[in-house]
């Protein structure tokens, strides 16, 4: 019995991946996450220019998770070269990138490949950055154009991270498939807002943010199930996973691997090790010899 898995052609020794945005702005920090039992780590989303992100407040705890509007802070792709050098010394690193146009994505993906990224993850789903992320990721035609352009410019796998904040999820997933995308990552955070009643104002400086954590898990599982029903592209499930049972739900809905974000904060970096162990126990008990045997079983 083994918990290694494949996302398309990419083999991972362990099925859990550090989600984009979590302790992954610097090389040393990514390397630390990789040594904690994750099969790979996704970088913070990197753009062409340095970006300070939104002003504080950018984050708060809510019942069932977190709401954040970091606003894609990053040092820019050129300075990120040094961070990638330190990060890939620790293991497999997926480079997350964001742009406003296909040509921006192409430039960024080329740099990530040059820096040694195992794959690129296109951020088509951040819910709190004007002109980026979810604002382009709900346009199936644009998604197809971006994924096609990146696919024809790099030789590493191209993953598309999608937003659940749309009724067009199936169309967008089909666009990724038509464009030859190597995997779909679902879901990003749910667009959200927190109001401070005592002040009568939204708490986040950006007003809107994205909800993550246990509260979004059932939405994510449903989204992965819908995507699996619509396309054959490998899926990486993400959203509210904090234990083996959450991870198993995503796998049975159709995901070949999964990512963890918020639970790294609530449970600590050891969350990967404990999920790996518990998932193995579950597989042994229930007669699954590989992760692959579990993928999508809820559809049968």
């Amino acid at each position: 019995m083994t918990i290694d898995t494949c996302v398309g052609s990419l083999k991972l020794e362990r099925p859990g991946i550090v989600a984009s945005g979590i302790m992954d702005e610097t090389g040393a920090s990514i390397a630390r996450m990789l040594s904690s039992g994750a099969g790979a780590a996704v970088t913070k989303s990197i753009g062409l220019q340095p970006n300070p992100g939104h002003r504080n407040p950018t984050f708060t705890e809510v019942k069932g998770g977190f709401v954040n509007a970091m606003g894609l802070p990053n040092p820019g792709i050129d300075l990120f070269k040094e961070e990638m050098g330190a990060a890939i010394a620790g293991g497999k690193v997926v480079g997350s990138i964001y742009g406003a146009t296909a040509s921006e994505f192409v430039t960024l993906a080329g740099k990530m490949e040059e820096y040694g990224a195992t794959a690129v993850e296109l951020n088509l789903s951040c819910p709190h950055a004007k002109g980026y992320g979810a604002e382009i990721g709900v346009d199936a035609a644009l998604v197809k154009k971006i994924v096609s352009a990146v696919k024809s410019s790099v030789s590493i796998p191209v993953w598309a991270k999608l937003t659940p904040n749309t009724h067009m999820l199936k169309e967008v997933a089909l666009a990724v498939q038509d464009a030859g995308g190597d995997a779909i990552v679902a879901i990003n955070t749910l667009k959200a807002m927190v109001i401070s009643p005592e002040f009568g104002k939204p708490f986040l400086s950006n007003k809107f943010g994205g909800l993550s954590g246990p509260a979004v898990r059932s939405v994510g599982v449903r989204a992965v199930y819908d995507i699996r029903a619509a396309v054959d592209v490998p899926i990486v499930g993400v959203g509210g996973i904090s234990d083996w049972r959450d991870a198993a739900q995503y796998i049975m809905a159709g995901a070949s691997a999964f990512q963890i974000g918020s639970a790294i904060a609530t449970k600590g970096v050891k969350v990967f090790d404990s999920i790996n162990k518990d998932l193995e126990d579950f597989m042994r008990d229930f007669g699954y010899s590989t992760i692959k045997d579990m993928v999508g079983v809820a559809h049968e």
Binding site: G21, M23, F66, N68, M70, P73, G261, I264, A265
Partner: peptide, 11 residues
Amino acid sequence: KCGAGVCGCCV
């Protein structure tokens, strides 16, 4: 930024 160990900006 987050203060809670999530974003990694204070490393």
